[in-house]
Design a protein around this nucleic acid. Structure first.
Lengths: 300, 300
DNA sequence: AGAAGGACCAGTGGTCCGTA
DNA sequence: AGAAGGACCAGTGGTCCGTA
């Protein structure tokens, strides 16, 4: 809604990336900010925050790593056409005008900030924390992890309202478009692989917070790492799906308003399928006391 | 559900196409057949039908414009990599085993049959017919067109039931996967560009058959061609969307069980958006006597 | 070793345009 | 000219694997 401001964009050779995007952050409040996580999240290099600093646009597709040599060094040896394009018109560094409009930056603070003048740091790794516990040291806790899912939801809501305004297709899920939007809005700590990686953990948190909390406490106490906790989240979820919907995990996701915007992870789907098969076709899938399947009203 | 039977597949150099597919036609009846269209559809080269003849698998990707030369003779001069692969192992014509299972062929007859020993013919073009009228000559009528949409729906239902059986992602729309499945089932006369082209005509037929029928009669009488009729289908649809849902065409599509499986055509969406904008934001979009927007119960 | 995320890739939605 | 559909292409879902 505000006009584009290309002065904010570093004119590196890769800034053409994103030209095809058209989304804008609406000025609407409430969405996208980190909320109080700027304080809660531990381990941030708080000395180095840059308000309204547009996120670094590095190569996003195509590696072009200066690593070694001639022609290229991509992970799989690609030639980068975009860059070639840039240097074609000898020297004239054709200033590509960005089509996107200015994005209202989230209040970017603390954890995962930008090293002064350097590359953006990776986010600190997660550790298993109890509910309410703030991670100390260069770590992030699980409340923060779940908070990221809420943020994504807010970004989706913004993308949806913009799409409706413009009469365009309206995503119902957290898609690539939403991740791109989040990044443009300055939430550079949100990315697709991370969010997809922990979806089922968030699902358990949504569907049965008691069980989720108990699991966190148990795994923290045992000193397990995040990977182990993550693995352990599958089982109670499968049990819930079996109990409530005859192992129809899609029905479970769709029945919950905060979960329905996330794609069901492949592995979770497979586990539910395997469990349904192995527990005999009559248990709940289309028979039994409660019948399982069907669009029943779940407690959400 | 039946085992693969590669003996049915002509071992031409192109039969590898589709190896990555995994869907199968369930033996379930009711789906996919042409129904009585084998009789109703006019213009078929009925002399030349081949039951259980697998559709021709030609190259599907890569242009490789041969404009000029040597190397090959495909329609667009492609170099067919699959073909290369086939002749690599000098002579041994490596019999590529198909991963797909046998597909229960639709009863393929009449219109758009196969010229004896030649290329598959294009379908006959549509002409504007009244409801119940059968096109004569090498033409197809509009009842047949709408019948194709019903067939696609049946193919989708089959794909869905297979996906559920296997615990895989289950499409809610007529996707590429469904078109591929239809083709493999022998419904070679179904293809994506055609179905997408006439979706809004089918939508009008679903949503207001009276209006749709009247339009067909009027355009037939005036001797208009299919293109003109197709264009004319937009307007009454937009009117319906405005009246019932404040120009929210997605809501309209989703509210109808046979329509909800089709993507809203871009142009229709744009027309609805334009209409909403130009008719003043207060007319029905969020005010007025009936309020328009919202998940109200439509008559479907 | 454990974890974060850039980059890749097969298959998608959408439709153009060479074809009949 | 009017129409059918093979083929293309930008951007997707999904996740691997080089990186820190």
């Amino acid at each position: 809604t505000t006009p584009p401001d290309s002065s904010q964009h570093p004119l590196d050779a890769l800034s053409q990336e994103g030209v095809q995007d058209k989304e804008v952050v609406g000025t609407g409040g409430g969405g996208g900010g980190r909320g109080n996580w700027e304080i809660m999240v531990a381990g941030g290099d708080t000395a180095a925050h840059h308000h309204h600093q547009i996120q670094q646009r590095k190569k996003y597709k195509k590696q072009q790593q200066g690593k070694t040599m001639i022609i290229n060094t991509n992970r799989k040896g690609h030639i980068d056409h975009q860059q070639q394009q840039h240097f074609n018109n000898d020297g004239e560094m054709e200033e590509v005008e960005r089509e996107e409009e200015e994005v209202e930056e989230v209040d970017d603070d603390s954890s995962g900030g930008v090293c002064r003048g350097g590359e953006r740091q990776r986010e600190h790794p997660f550790i298993v924390t109890e509910p309410g516990e703030v991670a100390r040291g260069k770590k992030n806790g699980l409340d923060y992890l779940f908070h990221l899912y809420e943020q994504c939801r807010e970004f989706l809501l913004q993308v949806q309202s913009i799409a409706k305004e413009r009469g365009e297709k309206c995503p119902t899920k957290v898609t690539n478009q939403v991740f791109r939007y989040a990044k443009r809005a300055g939430a550079t700590y949100i990315n697709k692989p991370k969010m997809r990686h922990y979806v089922h953990c968030y699902a358990l948190h949504c569907l049965d917070e008691e069980t989720s909390n108990a699991l966190r406490r148990a795994f923290k106490e045992r000193g397990e790492n995040v990977g182990a906790w993550r693995q352990a989240c599958y089982e109670p979820l499968v049990a819930i799906a079996g109990r409530l919907q005859g192992w129809d995990i899609d029905a479970i996701f769709n029945s919950h308003p905060r979960l329905s915007i996330w794609y069901v992870p492949t592995k979770l789907r497979q586990l539910c399928h395997a469990q349904r098969s192995s527990s005999g076709p009559s248990t709940s899938v289309s028979g039994g006391a409660r019948g399982g399947a069907g669009p029943d009203h779940l407690p959400f």
